[in-house]
Amino acid sequence: MAAETPLGETRAGAIGVRATVARVGRPGSVLRWVLRGQRRALLLWAVAVALVSGIYAGFYELLDVAEMEALVDSMPPGLAAAMGYDQLGTATGYLEFTVYGLLGPILVLVFAIGFAARTLAGQEEDGSLELEVTAAVGRRRVLLERYAALVVQVAVLVAAITAVVGVLVAAIDMPVGAVGLAAAGLGMLLLVLAIASVTFATGAVTGRRAIALAVGAVVAVGGFVADALADLLDDGRWMEALSPFSWYLSGDPLAEGVDVVGFAALLGLSVVAVAVAVPAFERRDLGV
């Protein structure tokens, strides 16, 4: 039996001196590691969303405004408005209909929901979270830093879109203000984060990647549909209260700037999601 050693005394062993000071992980270690592992994927996604946004924004040049107006006039009254075609006449309307209302959010959401479900629940399920959580970091730190990685990546993708659109707006002289661009970018960021946060929180609570993915997809698709139907249906306005897409877009951010109520609701949803996730993740069994 080894000789008793009073605690707090360092002893030189065969291989070196063991520090008796507890060494805990420095803040940011998890975040940096996750981002490092995501480098390649994030770069590819940024290029993809920038390309798609650029193509759509660039198309504005080719749109024949006169032809567009003729098309709108030829449609049954109300239908054009319902389909949003009446938007296409203006630059901000066009961008909101294509990049900001459809392709941008969809692409960034696909990335964000996938990552949000994988980074906590997915890693827990396949067992690779165990060594991280049992290292000298708390469960809370692991959760918050992985969430921060989500935020950073979504911000990068939205910034890529904003940059490309901004360059094209200037290049082809579209009547879109910098304030509008910033507001729409902020709105898209908050929208994607809200839905991704719900996904992330579902993963933190259930520990199941598939469930997190499903919930995220339902909220995204359901929100998108509710927003579209709100315009289409008579008396459909109430649906806007339920859809994060409406909170983001119904204030027409590209033209009107930040919609404080809508954006606050999106931010609130993210905050609530994280507030639910942290205690749930701290309290339950992991890896069962």
């Binding site: 992980g25 420095r26 590691w33 991280e132 970091v137």
Partner: peptide
């Protein structure tokens, strides 16, 4: 190396 960093470098 990552796991070492999680232990403050130990």
């Amino acid at each position: 190396g990552y796991y070492a960093r999680l232990r403050g470098g130990a």
